[in-house]
Design a protein around this nucleic acid. Structure first.
Lengths: 202, 202, 202, 202
DNA sequence: AATGAATGAGTCTTCATTCAT
DNA sequence: AATGAATGAAGACTCATTCAT
């Protein structure tokens, strides 16, 4: 989903390129697409991509960091709220699911091309990726401290299970052939939290 | 970790190539490595790779299917055992973790290059990938049927959370700089099951 | 070394660009530098280079012709003086050496990018280049006519040896890592003439 | 002029490429020619150039070093002969002129693209280039030691004048439109030595 | 089976030049 | 005059695949 400039404002070509890149990376994959595809999709000249970005890699770096940093910030904000730990996890899961609902292509690119790409962008952005996990772990830690969560599971480990569950659900949607309905999105938020917090044994 | 031929038997060049490919794919990534790297690592001539495999893709296909089919079989066998559902999940988690312990490079390749590669091998092998999820879901289903698991969480969804948690833990190891100790592997098996079955609330 | 406008006069952007081009061509070579480098070095906008010059080539053409025409004129003036042929050659060698001393970067550009560039600028400016050789040859011819020089060496040939020796000395300086001292410049003038006129046998 | 394989031997593609590169570099200049031009001229596939050479640069490096090292060796051998210093210079001038006569395209490439290319190959090959000058200087030094040459001119300087004169003559031929006759080559050898040793004053 | 030379399409990147303001 | 965004052609290099031996 493309960011739209204010009404009547001149088209921001840089933004146009980034939005086009999301579409193309999502459709064909980073490695399978050519820079020309991005330019074509954006409706700009080939060279303009290189006017705004050092390289094809830099385009993906920019896309990832823009979104990922927002997510990291949100997780931090959520943790600072005065609500139950479970509600915090609910907010985080909700934010990530809504991120996918709002811009599935961008989230697909982030998950497929970055967070699991251990030999390329995942390695490059390891610090940023870990920062997100750490912040989720802090939420769990808080829950353990207040006694809301039991300490049978190490916070860092719980964070991995929680984020892993979310990413797996998103991966399922990414692979799905049919569009995902709103109910499914909302259900997912609940189920993720219910599974991780409530457990299967209940 | 390479499969070794019986003592005294002639070296199976095809196996040599597959084992070399695992190393190279794990080290550099499928897209970043060249066919020449595989041949070099295997110590065989360039052209021999094409004698045994139709294409570079076919090498990865072979590696993936060899291992993945074993896993799918194991999950099925586990489900047929007369044990508690939670124990079944424990066995599955144990098998996957041990797969990583036994051959981390192959598991890295499978996770990084296939199960999340929505635009390339993940798409191609979607049926096989889904079969594994389905079998895990069947285990959960069985647990719900016997009343061991509550039905607050849909089996298919629980399977995703379960497998997602495992893959996230493995991804953490994949990205780790230091080697993983045996205790950590064993602990992980327990924690995954404890998290998914017991939940954080306990 | 940049030409400076009269005190208080507005900065001549065209001159600024030419002087910057000399620096950049000398530092990186004509082919290795970009038009942006020239604009940056001059501190002007990219497009202004194209306001004053038709092309990147035209910048070098201008630089070359500005200096080369002066040299050709000087050689002509020297020849018209009533002095010994050897003194004329001494004046020409002195002028070229001083040209290098005064603006080594411009001379580097002229020698490296034009006078030996048989497939690009050297070909384009062949008439101008030959005019200089011809004028030197005329000096030698005069020396032969007056009996000062023997006729064992054809004037045109002597001119080539003379100019070749000078250019080789300059090339040595161009390649040198350390700055050249004033004594070395003055010595060179004498040695060039002494070598060509006196010969090694003496 | 291409090196020819022994009769009946299979065509050495590497040699074919080098010989083609000489032709193309001489005709169009190193920067103006494309790698495809070399492959076309050699009648081989594009990729084969990169099978035998790391880069376009490496092709020129190889060409230069092959020939230049021979020249340096020859100068050393000449100096070890028991002949007059003047005869040694005659031999060196003769060898260089004959090198041009035998393969004018290669010599053009060496002079135009390397020995004066202060920002690219000339800089890279500075040690080799200087070695040649040094050996010529040693010849002059020997002449001064035996009293054959006067010591009014420093050997290193005389070497530059000598080599500069030769290169200028070759440059004249390089720029010439008409082919050079055998007499002109032979004359040049004598005139160069006569000019540098005998001097214009005689 | 085994070798490695040969092929050539594909693509990122560069950069001179143009143009709207 | 001055700016710098926009254009797009050009070219080096890569590398999967083929093939002759």
């Amino acid at each position: 989903m493309a960011s739209s400039p204010a009404k009547g404002s001149p088209p921001d070509k840089r933004r146009l390129i980034l939005d086009a890149a999301v579409k193309v990376f999502a459709r064909q994959g980073f490695n399978q697409c050519r820079v020309a595809d991005i330019a074509d999709e954006a409706g700009v000249a080939y060279g303009l991509v290189y006017h705004y970005f050092r390289s094809k890699d830099a385009v993906l770096d920019t896309l990832f960091l823009e979104r990922w940093n927002i997510m990291v910030d949100v997780i931090g904000q959520v943790d600072r709220q005065e609500i139950a730990a479970r509600e915090k996890l609910r907010s985080v899961a909700g934010f990530i699911v809504d991120s996918y609902r709002h811009d599935p292509e961008l989230m697909k690119v982030i998950i497929v091309e970055v967070t699991r790409a251990a030999n390329s962008f995942g390695r490059t952005h390891l610090p940023e990726i870990r920062r997100a996990y750490d912040r989720i772990a802090e939420i769990v830690e808080g829950g353990v401290r207040t006694g809301e969560f039991r300490d049978a599971v190490a916070p860092h480990f719980a964070a991995m299970a929680f984020y892993g569950a979310i990413e797996q659900v998103l991966t399922g949607w990414i692979f799905a052939d049919d569009p995902i309905g709103d109910e499914e999105f909302d259900q997912a938020k609940d189920l993720i939290v219910e599974t991780i917090c409530g457990g299967l044994n209940g």
